[in-house]
Design a binder for these strands. Structure first.
Lengths: 224, 224
DNA sequence: CTCACCCAAGCTGTCGACAGTCGGTGGTCG
DNA sequence: CGACCACCGACTGTCGACAGCTTGGGTGAG
């Protein structure tokens, strides 16, 4: 059932079990402790986590809505596997989101936005020297999340948050993540400059290039 | 608890209870049998439907992921109410989706696509004479769903399907739906023509106009 | 009359258990 | 020797029940 022995699964406590189980499962799937395509047994999971099946089922439904699990009736839940055009589709949808967010943000760009985004890129540059790939990915995603936050459309932000789980899954699938972290971090400066220019078409070009690089990197990383 | 007495809630049978409860709740919310903002009691719902609370809870989680319910820990589920910029945000996200779908479809437009879309608009024109507003809305949404289907990005299609539940909620909120159904149906011809032209900017203009009209219609209909 | 506190009712979060079903296994028959 | 069938174990779908929390009303003091 497991690709590796499951990670530390200590007894969860008290209430909010659904959220805790969901967090645990999310982490475990992103960390590939559960291989793509494998079936997750509710009873086994509930035993391992020391909880009943009800919270496990609800957490699994949550993960399903986030695209990390797939349920087949009377069969159970399976870890989402990205096959065929799935990767391209995910990054194409991301492109759709980012284009819109940058267009919105460009229309309301000011010094505060500039400061906020610049600070985050600096954080990324600092992290680039370290060895914690997970943090680099999170910082990268956080930069983009900031853009969506400040773009002003909450529904769009929620859509991006949903997609980000799948993005994490995509990035977790490639072996070496962030091979050239300094360059990747620095690649975010042109996005800020494009925003500052106030020209929509320049934003679009910068976004298309930026997301295209990320997409090609992941798709090539999988050899797909 | 109810705005109106709840609709016919006959005993559901056998398995797939989650899906049945979800369908029932979706219909009931769209039909405004449950007013926006009201709290849905799990026990009361399970009594009315003659099922236990487990399927109700899972169905509610599903509806939450679709934006029709909102859960507050230890408080329960509340019917989503669209307040503030919610309507504008939803339609702005829809614009984001449609722009992308039309751009994708324009690149692979052919006679088959032309035939399929034209047939659907004809269906809409026929329905326009009738009095079933629900069907008109469904036919309208189905036209757009066809565009997403044929655009070729399954993830984008899933995102639109998720959003479509919220769109139905938006349209259900305005009193008079589809005041001029003939004109609204006919308004889809320019979209097909724009696709056929193969010019991305013309597609974008047509989509922006089309979605803008829909947005203004709903937002004005609410007097928001 | 007002306000704070207390209590009870109802609800959510969680649990263990039962029934129906699915997949695999072993045996049997052609 | 291969194919079909019956049995069996495991699992999902569903249910009823219990504990802790939340809420609203009632009561008493100030």
């Amino acid at each position: 059932m497991h690709a590796n022995p499951p990670p530390a699964a200590p007894r969860l406590q008290q209430t909010n079990l659904v959220e805790q189980v969901a967090d645990y499962l999310t982490e475990a799937i992103i960390a590939r402790h559960y291989a793509p395509g494998v079936r997750l047994s509710e009873v086994q999971l509930s035993r391992e986590l020391g909880v009943s099946r009800a919270p496990v089922r609800e957490a699994a439904r949550l993960l399903e809505s986030r695209g990390l699990l797939i349920s087949r009736p009377r069969k159970g839940f399976y870890v989402r596997e990205l096959i065929g055009d799935d990767l391209a589709d995910v990054f194409d949808l991301r492109l759709c989101y980012e284009r819109h967010a940058f267009e919105l943000l460009a229309a309301r760009f000011d010094d505060a936005v500039h400061t906020e985004l610049s600070r985050q890129v600096e954080v990324m540059c600092e992290l680039a020297a370290g060895s914690d790939d997970g943090r680099k990915i999170e910082a990268d995603l956080h930069f983009h999340r900031l853009v969506f936050e400040m773009a002003g459309n909450r529904r769009l932000l929620k859509a991006f948050d949903d997609l980000s789980h799948e993005l994490r899954l995509c990035m977790a699938l490639i072996e070496r993540t962030h091979a050239e972290p300094e360059r990747i971090a620095a690649n975010h400066w042109p996005l800020i400059e494009a925003l500052a220019s106030g020209k929509p078409e320049r934003c679009r070009e910068a976004v298309d290039y930026h997301i295209g690089v990320a997409r090609d990197y992941v798709i090539q990383g999988l050899g797909a």
